[in-house]
Design a protein around this nucleic acid. Structure first.
Lengths: 240, 240, 240, 240
DNA sequence: GATGAATGAGATTTCATTCAT
DNA sequence: AATGAATGAAATCTCATTCAT
């Protein structure tokens, strides 16, 4: 079997896995169900993916690829704009990505949680995490997972230099804050809503989405001086 | 065995379950491990909690209780303050809660996701969700899970009336936005950090935390008029 | 606790056990359910009955007692009648017993099966049968379970002598045949029918019942001479 | 694995299950024991039969098949005989079936009890019955379980028309009565006896068997007129 | 390359029974 | 006498994974 054909098959399997994982979750998903979905035998699935964990990582890898593609696409099309404009665009695209592919977004979050827990604790019993880390796709993702961060922070830095971004704080902090906003929005929204239609606690989702994007921009525009009197309620935070 | 003793035992089990669930996750956790942790037999655990799902919900219930207690404690201590002050305090306490009990926070998020998915789709295969919903604790949580929202939004409304909160948008929107900020912060931070010490992508976690709290306040202070020129990058959002 | 009180309690438990066993069967029944039914603790049930099997045998013992009482009652009231009349009465009473207490009838059948299997094979694994045979009630039943047979056969013999029963075959054979008829009727009828109302395969149960009783009488009236030509279809059976 | 091989395996498992079930009963039987008996893993057994209940129903299905085969075989070989002769033959074969395969007979009785209880009561707790009814084999048996009845009653009707069967009562009643006789005989005999050798209550089993068959014929020959004086002991039953 | 039968390690759950109080 | 918490031995069922064909 030539390389092309192999890749086609792999993608077919990843398609099926994506559907099954997103519907019932990793633990509930069975290799049998995934194989059935594309009229394939379990044995064949194992021919292409050495383990369930490896297959899961392959789906996660695709999620990162799609996210990354958006970033590159975005860079290309906004080359001549200011740092603020590019950064805004990047987040707008990220939001669109998250809403179009809520499960990819979830996978990305899970991956981030995975590397966090890897860094800090090696829990004796967690066979699954070990298996995940054994996957070739894990390595592949490790190689690219910082790219979104570096792409965006580079644009933020550019914006801080060209004056379009007023907030002079650490670009990574800005990135994280904006990304947290997006994450929170997605998590609470739980990605079930048909965009613009649904309502959550009697707030239109579309309203919320717009306000979230506005807040991202506010972050970029935020100047350090602000009303310290109100801040005083919290602990003193002079550096902001 | 009197009521007190029973509750003590239940709490003992919940303690153990909390540790095990938070370490290896619900699916990876086994009743045997939970029982072992407190030198109890599996049968005994089942004497107190009718199923693994029920036990999980008991832990989740505790998480909501702790969160709710903070809210009430907070209300009590800030009675004579402005709406803005109270709301700020409430979020400050929520943040502290999340950082002190990251796993509780996770449980609360999971519960929210659970009721979302319950409302929208009855997936044929998901036995686990069904079992979760059968739990008495599920009912108990249903009865209280809206209280944080209603407590905070009431304070926001008060603040909007007394002039201390300038942002006149839908109080629920403000609540959700602030809560999303917190959620995103917690998710990305993955809550493993010892407060103030750790670093994420070379940003001090403490810095990030403070900035997050500042953003919450900014939400409250946000006035509707702002620079529409920058907004123009996004789709028009006249209502903000 | 005096003897009377003890017996009262035991009967209370047997009542509950009877209901539970008859509803869900021996294996499905739990000691907990039986105890609950009379607001008693499991421990107390064990105080009176040393095991589930023992309790089951106690219920079975009661069934035999009730059957036997009917026999004695019947003997008393038909003292001056012919052997045919008494025997008919005995079967009429047995039929009524079976229909009024279908579960007792089942217990009696089960007991008969139990002693059959005991006589013939000691299956290594059958812990339950062993436990049943350990019961004091098992011994008690062993002492009485032949009484119905001997009572009825004595009457048949009397009838054969006084000329009212024409069938001169072995009285035990007659007894078994009639009892088999009753057993088959009860088994197929499955005891669910409200007497006289229900229908089985479009045959009125009441019709069937009457016909069964008629057949019992036919057995008693059966004379040895009959049309041997038809019999020839079966293997030769000259002794009948 | 081709269809033939699969069926062979299934039959291998059914063989083992039949032995185990008949020896220790459904509830006492364990899948492990069944698997062990044919040097197979439990998992493999589950590969062929989705549950213990399903396997049990598969054995029951075989029992019905064997019974039915006898009926058809019998029909074939007695085509040119009278209704009386055919019916007699059918019962003779049924008796042989019951004696050769006592456990099959028991399974058939249990199945009949099962559908009776299904028709009349849905007991909340009986998970087992539900599981039984979920089996594919349950459906299969439902499709054939009335055939013996319809085959035999058709022959009885023919006999009533051709004059060889004198008893003009409802053919189904005759069928049930004869079948009840067989059932009672089998139940009391408990089917453990080596044919012709054993003795029950000092009656030769062979004698009893012959007499039972004779009674079946008597049913067919029974004419409605008989001695009403004796009947008077029972409640009036004018229709017989 | 593809198949699917076979495996076997576990996981949840149930209950009869015991025993300290 | 009575209670009911605690135990622990089983039993059913699931699936990721392997491997002969």
């Amino acid at each position: 079997m030539n390389r092309t054909k192999r890749i086609t098959k792999e993608n077919l399997i990843i398609d099926a896995a994506e559907k099954v994982f997103s519907t019932v979750g990793f633990r509930n998903a069975t290799m049998g169900e995934i194989a059935d979905k594309i009229q394939m035998s379990k044995g064949s699935v194992y021919f292409y993916f050495s383990s369930k964990e490896n297959l899961y990582m392959a789906v996660t890898h695709r999620a990162w690829q799609v996210l990354l593609d958006r970033h590159y696409y975005c860079l290309q099309s906004v080359k001549y704009k200011s740092g603020f404009e590019t950064t805004s665009e990047l987040f707008k695209f990220a939001m669109e990505f998250a809403e179009e592919h809520p499960y990819y977004f979830e996978l990305i979050m899970n991956f981030i949680a995975l590397i966090r827990s890897s860094n800090q604790q090696k829990l004796a019993k967690d066979k699954i995490r070990e298996a995940l880390e054994d996957s070739i796709y894990y390595r592949k993702i490790l190689d690219i997972n910082n790219l979104p961060l570096s792409i965006v922070t580079k644009e933020i830095e550019r914006g801080q230099k060209d004056g379009s971004i007023k907030n002079q704080r650490n670009p990574i902090l800005l990135y994280l804050s904006a990304w947290a906003l997006l994450t929170g929005y997605m998590t609470l929204n739980a990605s079930n809503s048909e965009r613009g239609k649904s309502t959550i606690f009697r707030v239109g989702v579309e309203d919320w989405r717009r306000y979230t994007m506005k807040m991202v921009q506010d972050i970029l525009n935020d100047e350090i001086e602000y009303d310290y009197q109100k801040q005083a309620i919290l602990e003193a935070t002079p550096e902001f």
